[in-house]
Write a protein that binds this DNA or RNA. Structure first.
Lengths: 140, 140
DNA sequence: TATTACATGATAAATTTTATTAATTAATAC
DNA sequence: GTATTAATTAATAAAATTTATCATGTAATA
């Protein structure tokens, strides 16, 4: 029994092939896919997968803290199985989303709390620009 | 001739009552309204206002840099006539969105650029939690 | 004031997400 | 291993948000 299966069972949730496929796909990519992308990717190996199942599974995984939802400013959400609070980089050129490895920003809440009466619980940091590939294309 | 009118004219855009109403509303609120909220608010004074006009005007204002679009993780976007890069606070309880007055974070791009090959142009920082009102309600 | 090009308003269409429900399947007990 | 049952899935409809279309209206200019 792997990690994910036992977590689902502990929460009283059934372990289904669809759920495992979705969480495994998210764990094995750095691409921060949308629900639609997850659906299309899994459809080839999983002809019976339904988009509604993808949405419901993502909602469930978000609720039990196995994935985080990113709002990078498109019309749709993207998902990340790395639930650590880490900043993201978004490319204006190709819309790709990368993780930023710079842990100094991972916990700004403590600092920010000094300047507001909000009781802060989470943060999302997005940096926009051009990825190395698109940067190269621009100068040509 | 006020500020906004001259900016629009410089860009070769027509100055219409609808456009002035939308930008003025945004300039006079701290509430970060959605397109729907802007539409409903202006409808009383402006019975002929169309939701499509609100969307098209917001798109235009965004393009010429007079408003910024926020994606705080709801199903819709919110708009801010303060185009300075400043962090936002979002309340889990009442979904209100506030500005954070803490300019130390206003320009993290320079710092972050040292740790990525992206050519960075903009940043969006969101802090989530409970506003003073909702915090108070929780402890009761 | 007339002309013209752009903007508006009404509506349709597209896109993303959520809700509904019958059929299926995982988990449990036997 | 099989039957039971309760949760999950799949297909679809519906809801919500945003964009596109196009005839009409209006701002800007002469």
């Amino acid at each position: 029994m792997d990690d994910i299966s036992s977590i689902l069972k502990e929460k009283g949730l059934k372990v289904t092939p669809q759920r495992l496929a979705i969480i495994n796909m998210l764990k094995n990519t750095k691409e921060h896919p949308s629900a639609e992308t997850i659906y299309k990717t899994l459809s080839s190996d999983f002809p019976t997968m339904s988009l509604a199942t993808v949405y419901k599974t993502l909602e469930m995984l978000k609720n039990i803290g196995l994935v985080q939802e990113l709002n990078v400013g498109e019309g749709s959400f993207r998902y990340d199985a790395n639930v650590n609070s880490h900043p993201h980089l978004i490319c204006y050129g190709c819309n790709r989303v990368d993780d930023l490895d710079y842990s100094a920003l991972d916990n700004l809440i403590g600092e920010v709390s000094k300047y507001t009466d909000y009781l802060l619980k989470d943060q999302k940091l997005y940096f926009y620009g051009y990825c190395p590939d698109c940067k190269k294309k621009m100068t040509n």
